[in-house]
């Protein structure tokens, strides 16, 4: 496969829509390590993380015809499914409900894709730096929500702070991170 990474993703998406299984292998070769890294970050268990990744790739395979490249990148879609599957494994038996809700939400036209504004060759170090720059309490709050799958009420209880504090940390944390990335041209 040749061309720019974004073109390659579009090419893979088109192949997947046609039911070409080699495209799924290419997708795995490109993003399998990232997908597994994300699942492992959430589950901290090799076997469970691999199961979540397998389910996510199969979900991509089964649902590829509904994927719209104009609404998001293949990688974003894949990672959103990985996260959903991993969190559902982590949090219990709510999988089917969540996956319908979240995977369809990923295609909601109101929400532009996370990576449309970002070059496909993301500056991941800058994103990590932006996250690391956050005050501990804000970073921990975002981690509990994003990687732990906790609701804001649950986070307030775990951190023993008022719910309003959690809401504030979430909002300010995301906005600070965005400002950091805007300043470095990672997002527009």
């Amino acid at each position: 496969m040749s061309g720019e990474p974004e073109d390659q993703d579009h090419h893979m998406a088109a192949q997947l829509k046609r039911g070409d299984s080699t495209a799924l292998e290419s997708l795995y070769d490109r993003y399998g390590g990232l997908a597994y890294g994300l699942a492992f970050r959430i589950l901290n268990d090799r076997s469970a993380a691999e199961d979540a990744v397998q389910e996510a790739f199969l979900a991509v395979w089964r649902n590829a015809s509904g994927f719209d490249t104009s609404r998001g990148s293949l990688r974003n879609w894949l990672l959103s499914i990985v996260r959903n599957r991993a969190i559902d494994r982590l949090r219990g038996n709510v999988r089917i409900h969540r996956e319908v809700q979240l995977e369809s939400a990923e295609h909601a036209p109101e929400v532009p894709d996370a990576w449309q504004a970002v070059a496909v060759d993301l500056e991941r170090k800058q994103i990590r730096d932006g996250f690391a720059e956050l005050p501990d309490a804000q970073r921990r709050t975002l981690e509990l929500a994003y990687f732990g799958g906790y609701t804001h009420v649950e986070i307030a209880s775990r951190m023993q702070v008022p719910l309003g504090t959690v809401k504030g940390r979430m909002r300010i944390g995301l906005e600070k991170m965005r400002s950091f990335l805007v300043a470095r041209g990672v997002v527009g």
Partner: peptide, 8 residues
Amino acid sequence: QTSSMLSL
């Protein structure tokens, strides 16, 4: 958009 970047 910012939240989804946490995956990265």
